[in-house]
Write a protein that binds this DNA or RNA. Sequence first.
DNA 1: CATTGTTACTTATTATCTGTAAGCTAAGTA
DNA 2: TACTTAGCTTACAGATAATAAGTAACAATG
Lengths: 123, 123
Amino acid sequence: MAAAPDSATADPPVVAHEPGVVCAIYHQAVELIGKRWTGAIVSILMRGPVRFNVLVSAVPGMSERLCADRLRELETAGLVSRRVLPGPPVGVEYALTEAGQDLNEAIEALGKWAHRWLEPVRV
Amino acid sequence: MAAAPDSATADPPVVAHEPGVVCAIYHQAVELIGKRWTGAIVSILMRGPVRFNVLVSAVPGMSERLCADRLRELETAGLVSRRVLPGPPVGVEYALTEAGQDLNEAIEALGKWAHRWLEPVRV
DNA sequence: CATTGTTACTTATTATCTGTAAGCTAAGTA
DNA sequence: TACTTAGCTTACAGATAATAAGTAACAATG
């Protein structure tokens, strides 16, 4: 009674390939998306392109510096694209690439889990 | 054209409740699971209960100290249970609670994403 | 022309967290 | 008593994050 969880889906598990160690590719993903603030940034961008300051104020505790750092990391990883806006007060708009948008399923799954188990939020 | 992604699933998005800020409960979850090593630990426990040292060696870069720290955090959060084994060389076995096992869907979704987009792993 | 305001960052400093290695405890064995 | 195994715990250097201030480009204001 150790191995297979009785999920109704027919898909085989993808994070349990190697016997004794954590799946390397999954681990890579969790270290990228799981890095502080990154999950929040991606979930905000999932609604559509936004500008830097909007992003900063959308994630309460996050500083401008860390937001800039994480956006650059996400850009390097190919999840986020950056576009300079021509308007008078200049501006930079960030958006998810195809790879970034494809994270939606994972984010929604985590969101649903959170609503199931973390509802009594105490902060 | 900013709001709704054209997903075929009938479920409404759960991480886009409030208009200008990140969903608080989702954020709580991503800060918990996303904390360094936590995602890896949970994915290993998803296969079944394991003992401390097995867990440590299943996640290559993780030290005993951080493993103990994360396990205690996960226990406090109600995702992991701890059981002392009676055997001759003593031992402690960690297992996922119901809440922890329910993370399977989210972990699998992230794993699938990783396999789609991160395949050319270079570390 | 100088002042102020906006947007998007940088830089500097301080606090917190992580990595590495060693030590400690408890149970069992010789 | 000494030694072994398993599971932590402590100590300290180095990496990462938090906080606050500063910079550059432009516009509108006085």
